[in-house]
Structures are given as structure tokens and as C-alpha cells.
Design a protein around this nucleic acid. Structure first.
Lengths: 196, 196
DNA sequence: CTACATAAGTGAAATAATTACACTTATTGT
DNA sequence: ACAATAAGTGTAATTATTTCACTTATGTAG
């Protein structure tokens, strides 16, 4: 799907990019993120340092080869949902699907460990998700017939995109997902209880 | 309160730190963040580059001289609230107070413009708030008699700390605050409406 | 098929943030 | 007064990132 029907040039370009990403991930998992320089990655992939920067915006981006697919995924999830489904339910299903797909990856544990142990990568990962707050918020607003900048839609979008960040520091991911969607559906009864 | 009853050493240290922060802010507002190097700041404050790094963890930190006070502020807000007040109400009050204090600053507009126009600073500001998710979440859990890692408490904490990030990209701050607390109190009725 | 335009890749050099190190100087507590 | 300690200095090294002028491969119009 991604490497089809393209000219030789495009194919070679994609191959180079992939070689760099692969070399980077291998080295990072082997030695740790900070112990690997961009030059190391370039050498391992047999390209120049300049070429690495032609393909990736910076060192952190070498770790996350996805990013863009995510944004469209969320937006599509709400737009193409069955007509009798609420947007909250659609997003709930989407997240669960993403989660299960991620679970079934062999390198998953190493990968998570790499990110958890590298502050720069944690920060980058968080931003990677929350960067799409505006887009998802607008998509939600459109679905519900609200203004594009509707603050409630944006806040809801943000809370949902916070989920990956919430599943760190020894938190149970599935519980975090449940908690977020419970908040969205019913609010926070505990927090609103008064003590008098 | 901050510069009292300290020895000469501590006082000079604080003065140096302040001189650096002041020089940095002045230069950043004048020329823009990227056009000012750490060396420029050091020269303007008449200290060595090394000294700058002794006081601030990095270039971004030069802009945000608060950070730590914020965390304790939120935690105290919930702990010292009147006994007939819910934690949500206490946090609502606290945020509104912070907001009003910030409004009454002469440099506020320039400051906001500086951050909005500098991607690195936006990212840093977001992290600065959400960094305290775990602490505030734990404090909330303790108040409510839940487990320290209770996912709902943590999610609620995160949503509240998201507020500053939500007030960007042409969003109305007060509306964002209202939206977040409405979500916390009653959930998201619009998002849960089904269309059949 | 040829020639030209263009995009990918190269290599070197410049800039700037960040860290390490060995050193001087000022402050503090005894 | 003195020894311990913390603040500050200056230099040098490391490394991410950008810029630039250059080569080479590919695609394409004629």
C-alpha cells in the first residue's frame, strides 16, 4: 500500500528512509537513545548526516515513524462511524483498536522501555499526540454542529489524546482508557462530592 | 517572602538568578527567542555562560521562572479547601485566581505573543503544566480516599492542567476553563448524543 | 534517443546548546 | 583564623542542526 505504483526514484527514497529508521531503532534499542549520535545512525544506514535530516525533522523523529497516520485515523474514526453511534463511543472503539494492535508487537516492550527511560522521547511522544488536539477538536465540532473552536470539543479531544501520556508512571493502560471515557460520559462524581 | 532572612551568599545567588532571568526576558522580547543565544544572555547579565546553566536547566527554562510554585499551589488548593467544598470547586477557584493574577500584568501580551510564536516554548510550557499530573493526581486521590495511582484522579488532574494549553490557537481562555470544569462536573452530553 | 529540469544524496563548514573540567573567590560555621 | 563549601569563571569538547555548493540519478518533453 505504501510502496506500490511509484517510480524508481520514489521507491529508492522510501527505501532510504526506511533504512535510516531501521538503523536508528536498532541502535537506540542496543545502546540507548543518548548514546547514539546522528552520525552513528547515518553511518549504520550508509548515508550522509545531511540525508538523515532530509528525511527526519530531528533526532526524536527517528523513533516515531508514524505521527501523521494517527491524526487522520482519529478524524476518520468519528466521521465514518455508524449513524447510531455517538462520537464518544466511536473514539472509544478506535482507541481500543489502536491499543490492541500495539499490544501484539514483538518489540513493544523494548520500545516502551526506550521511551520511558528517555525524557526527551517522553516529551516528544506526548506532544506527538496532543499536537492533533485542534484538528480532532474541530472535527468533533463539525460532527456536532458546533463552532470550529468550540472549547468543549477541544477539551474533550485533548483529554482523549492525553491517554497515551496517562499510561505512564506505572499506570494501567486499560484502566486509563476506561477512566477517560467514564469522565467524558458521566463526569467525575467523586470529585464533586462535598464533605459536610 | 522569597528573599528574606537569608545569608549574604543566598541573597547574592538569588540576585544573580534574577539578573539572568531579567536579561533573558528583555532580550527575548526585543529580538525574539531564536535570535538570542545563551551567550548573549550571559553577557547582558554580566555572568559566564557556565553560570547561566548553573541556574537554569536550559534555554527554555529562562522564560519560565515559576514552574515549581505552580505544583505546590495546586496541591495546596485542594488540601486547604473549606470542608464543605468539593475538590473540583476548589480547583476551579484556584484556576480562576491564577488567571486573574496573570491578566493584570503589563507585559502579559508580549509574553503570550513570545510563547505563541515560538514552537519550542509552546512545547515547554505545555510540559511545564502537565509535568505535575502525577503529583496533583496523587493529591486528589489522597483527598478522596482512593489509591495513589487511581486513573480517574490522574485523568482529572491532567485535564485541569491542560487548560493553559487549551487556551491557544485563538481560544477564549475563560470559555476553556468553563468547558473543562463542565466536563468534570457533568460529562459531555453533546458527545454522547446518538443520531438515530 | 537526447537534453534539460529536478530531486536525492554528499561533504564540509558554521552555529549554538550543553556538558565536563580544573580553577579562583567569597561565605559560612567552628 | 581556618577549613569546608558553594558560587562563579574560562576553556575545551561534544553533538544536534543548518547552510551551501556540488554530484548523480531519475523523469520527461521534444
Amino acid at each position: 500500500m505504501t510502496t506500490e505504483n511509484l517510480g524508481r526514484r520514489e521507491r529508492k527514497k522510501a527505501a532510504t528512509r526506511q533504512a535510516i529508521a531501521d538503523a536508528a531503532l536498532t541502535l537506540f534499542l542496543e545502546r540507548g537513545y543518548d548514546a547514539v549520535s546522528i552520525k552513528d545512525v547515518a553511518d549504520a544506514a550508509d548515508v550522509s548526516v545531511t540525508t538523515v535530516f532530509k528525511h527526519f525533522s530531528g533526532k526524536e523523529a527517528l523513533v516515531f515513524d508514524l505521527d501523521q497516520e494517527m491524526e487522520t485515523g482519529f478524524v476518520e474514526a468519528v466521521q465514518t462511524r455508524p449513524s447510531d453511534q455517538s462520537v464518544v463511543d466511536a473514539l472509544h472503539d478506535h482507541i481500543l483498536a489502536l491499543w490492541r494492535a500495539f499490544e501484539g508487537h514483538s518489540q513493544r516492550n523494548q520500545f516502551v522501555a526506550l521511551i520511558d527511560s528517555t525524557p526527551v522521547l517522553r516529551a516528544y511522544a506526548d506532544r506527538m499526540w496532543t499536537r492533533h488536539t485542534k484538528t480532532l477538536g474541530t472535527a468533533l465540532a463539525k460532527e456536532l454542529g458546533q463552532d470550529a473552536n468550540d472549547p468543549t470539543c477541544r477539551a474533550a479531544a485533548r483529554l482523549i489524546l492525553d491517554i497515551p501520556a496517562l499510561t505512564r508512571d506505572g499506570a494501567d493502560s486499560e484502566a486509563a482508557i476506561r477512566a477517560v471515557f467514564s469522565l467524558l460520559r458521566d463526569g467525575w462524581s467523586d470529585g464533586n462530592r462535598r464533605f459536610n
